[in-house]
């Protein structure tokens, strides 16, 4: 499934948040969107899917397999969300309800979009839990009984259970520790590839991006600053925004490997 965003303008009152943003995610392609915190990455994802509050004005065009999303009816969005497009959010402990067992949160979009009986649904949930590397008995647990990594696996299971053809992952690994980040990114990539789905991977962390996306966009101050193969961006960023992000990623990698070697001595 392809997503074609062109000339997207998003503003709150008189304040522009995104200006003239164009971005494409091809069929079965994994694309990165990187930018500092506050550059408007989440706003882009939310406005494309019609999830912005009513104070936010969205103009321009966003085509999902040719279907116009900007200004689409609530009914259209409700049919697309959770069926054609799956979301994985940043902080799993916040995006899972604390009072509902995780199994029921995973089956939510299945229940919303397909008429399966509860036995079939539960079987699908069990399969999905195993796919994300969790035991099927965890369906009865509550989020607070799981670790951060397990919670994010649950969130991924919830986003992928209806086999959506486009996955939007907004800072999906940011709240996790480095080891878990790597595991979760690998998991997400392999699941997306197995399903033949497209992925829009949003992050502020260039070092994670290299594992995920062939092609990336750098967002800064509400505009696309540069775009290209992730490897090229990482090796030779052309713009100020790109350089700063790459530098930040290198610093993190460098200082952490340095302290590792110090510890070893």
């Amino acid at each position: 499934m392809s997503l074609e965003v062109s000339k997207l303008h998003v503003s709150v009152g008189e304040t522009p948040i995104l200006e003239d943003v164009s971005l494409t995610v091809g069929d079965a392609e994994r694309v990165g969107l990187v930018g500092t915190s506050g550059s408007g990455k989440s706003m882009l994802a939310m406005s494309v899917m019609g999830l912005t509050p009513s104070t936010v004005r969205v103009e321009g065009s966003a085509l999902l397999d040719g279907q116009q999303l900007v200004g689409a009816s609530p009914q259209t969005f409700a049919d697309i969300r959770g069926r054609s497009v799956g979301f994985v959010f940043q902080d799993p402990s916040a995006s899972l309800s604390p009072v509902i067992p995780v199994g029921r949160q995973i089956e939510r979009s299945l229940k919303r979009h397909y008429s399966l009986n509860s036995k079939n649904r539960r079987a699908r949930v069990a399969t999905m839990l195993e796919k994300v590397g969790l035991s099927a008995d965890l369906a009865a647990s509550y989020p607070h009984e799981l670790s951060g990594g397990q919670q994010q696996r649950v969130a991924i299971a919830a986003a992928l259970i209806t086999s959506p053809k486009l996955i939007i992952a907004d800072e999906s690994t940011t709240a996790l520790d480095a080891m878990t980040q790597v595991q979760i990114t690998r998991l997400l990539v392999s699941l997306v590839d197995d399903a033949g789905a497209s992925l829009l991977f949003i992050t502020h962390d260039f070092s994670v991006l290299a594992r995920v996306a062939q092609r990336s966009y750098v967002l800064g101050e509400g505009r696309v600053q540069e775009e290209g193969p992730t490897q090229d961006l990482l090796e030779a960023p052309q713009t100020e925004a790109g350089k700063r992000l790459v530098l930040a990623a290198r610093k993190l990698t460098f200082s952490s490997s340095q302290s590792d070697s110090e510890r070893r001595q």
């Binding site: 999830l51 959010f89 309800s97 939510r108 919303r112 919830a158």
Partner: peptide, 21 residues
Amino acid sequence: SRYVEAARAAGSSRWKALRTH
């Protein structure tokens, strides 16, 4: 909360998301 947002992103209507959460 984020989980109401997540429910909306999974296709629930606003009213349904509020009721269940």
